[in-house]
Amino acid sequence: SKGEELFTGVVPILVELDGDVNGHKFSVSGEGEGDATYGKLTLKFICTTGKLPVPWPTLVTTLSYGVQCFSRYPDHMKQHDFFKSAMPEGYVQERTIFFKDDGNYKTRAEVKFEGDTLVNRIELKGIDFKEDGNILGHKLEYNYNSHNVYIMADKQKNGIKVNFKIRHNIEDGSVQLADHYQQNTPIGDGPVLLPDNHYLSTQSALSKDPNEKRDHMVLLEFVTAAGITHGMDELYK
Results as ranks from 00 to 15, higher is better:
I97F: 00
F45L: 10
D233G: 11
N184D: 07
H138R: 11
I46L: 07
Q93P: 01
Q183P: 00
K155I: 05
N22K: 03
N158S: 10
D75Y: 08
E171A: 08
V67M: 14
D179Y: 09
I166F: 02
Y73F: 03
L59H: 00
L59R: 01
K208E: 05
F82I: 03
M87I: 05
T49A: 04
L200Q: 04
Q176L: 14
A205V: 15
F222Y: 13
P12S: 01
Y142C: 07
D128E: 09
D132E: 07
I13L: 09
D35K: 03
D101E: 09
T58I: 02
Q79R: 13
L140Q: 03
L17P: 00
L59I: 07
N143T: 12
Q156L: 10
I160V: 15
V10G: 05
D154N: 12
L235R: 11
V192G: 14
S85Y: 08
I166T: 11
N158K: 13
P195T: 05
K208I: 08
N169D: 15
L235P: 10
Q79L: 13
N145I: 10
T42P: 01
M87T: 03
Y65F: 00
S201I: 07
K51T: 11
H76C: 08
F98V: 11
G133D: 04
D101H: 04
I97V: 12
T58S: 08
T61S: 15
G188D: 09
P53A: 02
K165Q: 12
I97T: 02
D75G: 11
M217V: 03
N148D: 13
A226S: 07
S29C: 15
L206M: 10
E4R: 14
I127A: 15
P57L: 02
E212G: 01
S27G: 08
G190C: 12
S27I: 05
H80P: 02
P12A: 02
L194M: 14
V175L: 09
T224P: 01
R214S: 03
L194P: 05
V162M: 08
K78T: 09
G3S: 12
K125M: 08
G34S: 01
L14V: 14
K40M: 11
Y236F: 12
G159R: 10
G190D: 07
Y199F: 13
I160G: 01
N148S: 07
G190V: 15
A36G: 10
M152V: 14
M152T: 12
E234D: 04
G90S: 00
D179G: 06
D101G: 09
V15F: 02
I135T: 05
S27C: 12
R108C: 07
T202I: 15
I170V: 10
R214H: 06
G66V: 00
Q156P: 09
R95P: 00
F98I: 07
H180Q: 09
G190A: 03
H24Q: 15
T37S: 15
A205G: 04
S146N: 12
G90A: 00
N104H: 15
T58A: 05
E31A: 06
I151F: 02
T42A: 13
F164Y: 08
K84E: 01
N134T: 04
K51R: 09
G115A: 03
E94D: 07
N134I: 05
P53L: 03
D116G: 13
F99S: 01
S71I: 06
F26V: 06
P191L: 12
D18H: 14
V11A: 02
F222V: 11
L124P: 00
H76N: 12
D196A: 14
Y181S: 05
